[in-house]
Protein backbone atom coordinates (compact mmCIF):
# COMPACT_ATOMS: atom_id res chain seq x y z
CA UNK A 1 0.00 0.00 0.00
CA UNK A 2 2.82 2.38 0.98
CA UNK A 3 4.70 1.46 -2.15
CA UNK A 4 1.69 2.31 -4.30
CA UNK A 5 1.30 5.72 -2.75
CA UNK A 6 4.94 6.42 -3.32
CA UNK A 7 4.66 5.42 -6.93
CA UNK A 8 1.71 7.72 -7.32
CA UNK A 9 3.75 10.55 -5.88
CA UNK A 10 6.49 9.95 -8.45
CA UNK A 11 4.10 9.42 -11.31
CA UNK A 12 2.36 12.69 -10.56
CA UNK A 13 5.48 14.65 -11.46
CA UNK A 14 5.30 16.11 -14.96
CA UNK A 15 8.96 17.09 -15.32
CA UNK A 16 11.68 16.81 -12.71
CA UNK A 17 13.69 14.50 -10.51
CA UNK A 18 13.02 12.16 -7.66
CA UNK A 19 15.77 11.24 -5.21
CA UNK A 20 14.91 8.09 -3.38
CA UNK A 21 16.56 5.87 -0.80
CA UNK A 22 18.01 8.80 1.13
CA UNK A 23 19.08 7.78 4.65
CA UNK A 24 16.69 9.51 7.03
CA UNK A 25 19.47 11.30 8.88
CA UNK A 26 20.80 12.72 5.61
CA UNK A 27 17.54 14.00 4.14
CA UNK A 28 17.83 17.56 5.35
CA UNK A 29 21.54 17.71 4.56
CA UNK A 30 20.64 16.85 0.98
CA UNK A 31 17.80 19.37 0.99
CA UNK A 32 20.23 22.01 2.17
CA UNK A 33 22.84 21.03 -0.41
CA UNK A 34 20.24 21.39 -3.16
CA UNK A 35 19.14 24.73 -1.71
CA UNK A 36 15.53 23.62 -1.71
CA UNK A 37 14.64 26.42 0.68
CA UNK A 38 14.99 28.84 -2.23
CA UNK A 39 13.36 26.59 -4.81
CA UNK A 40 10.25 28.18 -6.38
CA UNK A 41 9.08 24.99 -8.02
CA UNK A 42 6.95 22.31 -6.44
CA UNK A 43 8.99 20.32 -3.91
CA UNK A 44 7.97 17.28 -1.91
CA UNK A 45 10.10 16.36 1.08
CA UNK A 46 9.20 13.05 2.67
CA UNK A 47 10.97 11.27 5.50
CA UNK A 48 10.66 8.08 7.51
CA UNK A 49 8.91 6.33 4.65
CA UNK A 50 8.86 2.59 4.97
CA UNK A 51 11.46 0.83 2.89
CA UNK A 52 12.07 -2.85 2.32
CA UNK A 53 15.75 -2.21 1.76
CA UNK A 54 16.56 0.42 4.39
CA UNK A 55 13.72 0.02 6.90
CA UNK A 56 13.10 3.78 6.74
CA UNK A 57 14.11 6.25 4.09
CA UNK A 58 13.81 9.80 2.88
CA UNK A 59 12.61 10.99 -0.51
CA UNK A 60 12.72 14.26 -2.45
CA UNK A 61 10.61 15.15 -5.45
CA UNK A 62 11.61 18.32 -7.21
CA UNK A 63 9.66 19.66 -10.12
CA UNK A 64 11.59 21.17 -13.01
CA UNK A 65 14.96 20.06 -11.65
CA UNK A 66 17.46 18.02 -13.66
CA UNK A 67 20.82 17.31 -12.10
CA UNK A 68 24.16 17.76 -13.85
CA UNK A 69 27.07 15.41 -13.20
CA UNK A 70 28.69 17.74 -10.69
CA UNK A 71 25.53 17.88 -8.61
CA UNK A 72 25.18 14.13 -8.82
CA UNK A 73 28.76 13.71 -7.61
CA UNK A 74 28.01 15.97 -4.66
CA UNK A 75 24.97 13.87 -3.84
CA UNK A 76 27.06 10.73 -4.07
CA UNK A 77 29.54 12.09 -1.55
CA UNK A 78 26.84 13.09 0.94
CA UNK A 79 24.94 9.83 0.63
CA UNK A 80 26.15 7.13 -1.72
CA UNK A 81 23.67 4.58 -3.11
CA UNK A 82 20.69 6.91 -3.39
CA UNK A 83 18.41 6.38 -6.36
CA UNK A 84 17.75 9.11 -8.89
CA UNK A 85 14.73 9.06 -11.19
CA UNK A 86 14.33 11.56 -14.00
CA UNK A 87 10.81 12.23 -15.23
CA UNK A 88 9.75 13.97 -18.41
CA UNK A 89 6.13 14.28 -19.56
CA UNK A 90 5.04 12.07 -16.67
CA UNK A 91 7.33 9.29 -17.86
CA UNK A 92 10.38 7.85 -16.20
CA UNK A 93 13.20 8.49 -18.69
CA UNK A 94 16.09 7.53 -16.45
CA UNK A 95 16.47 5.61 -13.24
CA UNK A 96 19.86 5.06 -11.73
CA UNK A 97 21.63 4.32 -8.51
CA UNK A 98 23.97 7.18 -7.70
CA UNK A 99 27.35 5.66 -6.94
CA UNK A 100 30.46 7.38 -5.75
CA UNK A 101 32.55 8.07 -8.88
CA UNK A 102 36.19 6.99 -9.15
CA UNK A 103 37.32 10.60 -9.43
CA UNK A 104 35.80 13.69 -7.85
CA UNK A 105 36.95 16.96 -9.36
CA UNK A 106 36.37 20.12 -7.34
CA UNK A 107 33.63 18.54 -5.24
CA UNK A 108 35.44 17.89 -1.98
CA UNK A 109 37.65 20.09 0.20
CA UNK A 110 40.89 18.56 1.48
CA UNK A 111 41.05 18.37 5.28
CA UNK A 112 44.84 18.79 5.26
CA UNK A 113 45.58 22.47 5.94
CA UNK A 114 49.02 22.24 4.34
CA UNK A 115 47.70 20.66 1.15
CA UNK A 116 48.39 22.84 -1.88
CA UNK A 117 44.68 22.77 -2.76
CA UNK A 118 43.86 24.81 0.36
CA UNK A 119 46.40 27.45 -0.50
CA UNK A 120 46.07 27.98 -4.26
CA UNK A 121 43.08 28.95 -6.39
CA UNK A 122 42.80 25.50 -7.96
CA UNK A 123 40.48 22.55 -8.31
CA UNK A 124 40.67 19.67 -5.88
CA UNK A 125 40.84 16.12 -7.16
CA UNK A 126 39.97 13.10 -5.04
CA UNK A 127 40.11 9.44 -5.91
CA UNK A 128 37.80 6.82 -4.45
CA UNK A 129 39.95 4.37 -2.52
CA UNK A 130 37.11 2.21 -1.25
CA UNK A 131 33.43 2.62 -0.58
CA UNK A 132 33.89 5.07 2.26
CA UNK A 133 37.36 6.54 1.74
CA UNK A 134 38.65 9.25 -0.59
CA UNK A 135 42.26 10.17 -1.27
CA UNK A 136 43.55 13.60 -2.24
CA UNK A 137 45.45 13.56 -5.52
CA UNK A 138 47.86 16.24 -4.33
CA UNK A 139 48.83 15.56 -0.73
CA UNK A 140 47.87 11.87 -0.70
CA UNK A 141 45.93 12.16 2.55
CA UNK A 142 42.89 9.95 2.95
CA UNK A 143 39.53 11.03 4.29
CA UNK A 144 36.46 9.12 5.36
CA UNK A 145 33.23 10.03 3.59
CA UNK A 146 31.53 10.75 6.89
CA UNK A 147 34.10 13.49 7.59
CA UNK A 148 34.06 15.03 4.14
CA UNK A 149 33.41 18.71 3.60
CA UNK A 150 32.19 19.82 0.22
CA UNK A 151 34.09 22.56 -1.53
Amino acid sequence: MEQNKENMMVAALENGSVIDHIPTDKLFTVAQLLQLRDCKEEVVIANNLKSNVMNKKGLLKISGKFFNEEEISQLAVICPNIRLTVIKDYKVVEKREVLLPDTLTNIVKCANPVCITNNEPMKTVFYRKDKDTLKCRYCGKEQKLKDIKLK
Partner: peptide, 9 residues
Protein backbone atom coordinates in the same frame (compact mmCIF):
# COMPACT_ATOMS: atom_id res chain seq x y z
CA UNK B 1 57.82 24.03 -1.19
CA UNK B 2 56.34 23.76 2.27
CA UNK B 3 52.92 22.75 0.94
CA UNK B 4 52.14 19.11 0.20
CA UNK B 5 51.33 18.43 -3.43
CA UNK B 6 52.94 21.67 -4.62
CA UNK B 7 55.32 19.95 -7.02
CA UNK B 8 52.59 17.84 -8.57
CA UNK B 9 50.43 20.90 -9.08
Amino acid sequence: HKLEGAALY
